[in-house]
Design a protein around this nucleic acid. Structure first.
Lengths: 210, 210
DNA sequence: CTAACAATACGTAGAAATACCTATTTTTCA
DNA sequence: TGAAAAATAGGTATTTCTACGTATTGTTAG
């Protein structure tokens, strides 16, 4: 490892985790030049000192790790971002891929995995764990069924608790059209032929409807 | 503080958090005699060395922190348990109160709160944070509306995705009765007068229907 | 270009959820 | 014991969701 002199900024709204991360990075020989409890403070510090690496929690008050990364990209900073997260949710993963996220690892990962991720990212490569990929494939109920954009849009509205009539009004289309879409969604998702099965499914999977 | 000689066992399936907790307790002068990634190992160690304190994550593989605490009570151990958790969910809180849980704190708490909790518990008292109480009161949609046992039972079945007909069959009562209960639940919960509003509410609050 | 797909729309029908009534029996508690 | 609360059941009507058809218009990829 040639991490000896690398500077890093970290942020996590869970103090215990922040402390653990801080200690661990120090053990690795990295210099933690800033540790923050929210995204906004972290971004300010990153802009100020432009370190080669920032390790950020995904879910934080003020600004999420993703938002911080987005701003870094907008500002043209060279700071690489590794996201720490509890969830292997697809919507975040997709967004992470679109931004300049260099790594995405789960908090449940072993410290050794984290060390590997840091090494990889500092050497200029990306680190998106295999474990993460597997998990995503299993959880991704949508890609398998290849819903069309309209179907997805309607599915999101259903998940938000809107009725067919409301959806029709909102999208300026006929209720019958919405009906048809619902029908198609139900077959694609292979749902039970039972009343409200689509509504129930949508309510339970609303977080995956990125 | 007179924590100088106290022994403690900790467990959390998030390695970074476990490390942070370990370091923090060491800073406080406590002696961490065991740090584990799952509940089972932690329980074994607690039974072996019967320390005065154990700080456990609520959600862990093998055994949850609650299960470990339940076993400790069953075995008559004097080890006091503080639960660490990410969620302020009522169902866990209720269970925690019924077991020999001495403290229940959120991972988002400041280190100072954690220190206070440890002091309080080691001195023989309980620590259930005020913040936690407030949060629970807000999230507890049920106690305010005083649903009857039957109404709760039906609400749970609705949350499980069952239709009125299915519920009637399952409970050996008329569909009309279920209708009436639904109606009453809707007024008690003050839901919108809109189709499926009860179903949507039930789906979104199923975790609070302990 | 054309064949496939997507989005649009309509008709008919049935199952389900809800509203707003009334009414009886059972339980609970003061 | 007597009153209140809860659980039970029914009637009638409306709205919504879903199924299963058909059919027209764009769009797009081979």
């Amino acid at each position: 490892m040639d991490n000896q002199r690398h500077q890093v900024i970290i942020a996590d709204d869970h103090p215990i985790l922040l402390k653990g991360l801080h200690e661990f990075l120090a053990d690795l020989g990295l210099e933690v030049i800033g540790a923050f409890h929210n995204g906004k403070d972290a971004l300010d510090a990153i802009v100020d000192s432009q370190p080669p690496l920032a390790i950020l929690d995904l879910e934080m008050p003020e600004m999420t790790g993703l938002e911080v990364a987005a701003d870094c990209k907008k500002l043209g900073l060279k700071t690489r971002v590794i996201l720490l997260t509890l969830h292997k949710e697809l919507k975040f993963y997709q967004q992470a891929k679109e931004l300049n996220i260099s790594g995405y690892i789960l908090k449940e990962f072993a410290l050794n995995d984290l060390r590997k991720a840091i090494d990889t990212v500092l050497s200029g490569q990306e680190f998106f764990s295999e474990k993460l990929f597997e998990g995503l494939k299993k959880e991704d109920c949508l890609s398998d069924h290849s819903l069309t954009p309209s179907e997805l849009k309607i599915l999101r509205l259903i998940a938000d608790g809107h009725s067919t009539k409301e959806i029709a009004e909102q999208l300026f289309i006929s209720e019958r059209t919405v009906d048809k879409h619902r029908s198609n969604i139900i077959s694609k998702l292979n749902l039970e032929k039972k009343h409200n099965s689509l509504l129930i499914w949508a309510q339970n999977n609303k977080d995956n409807l990125y």
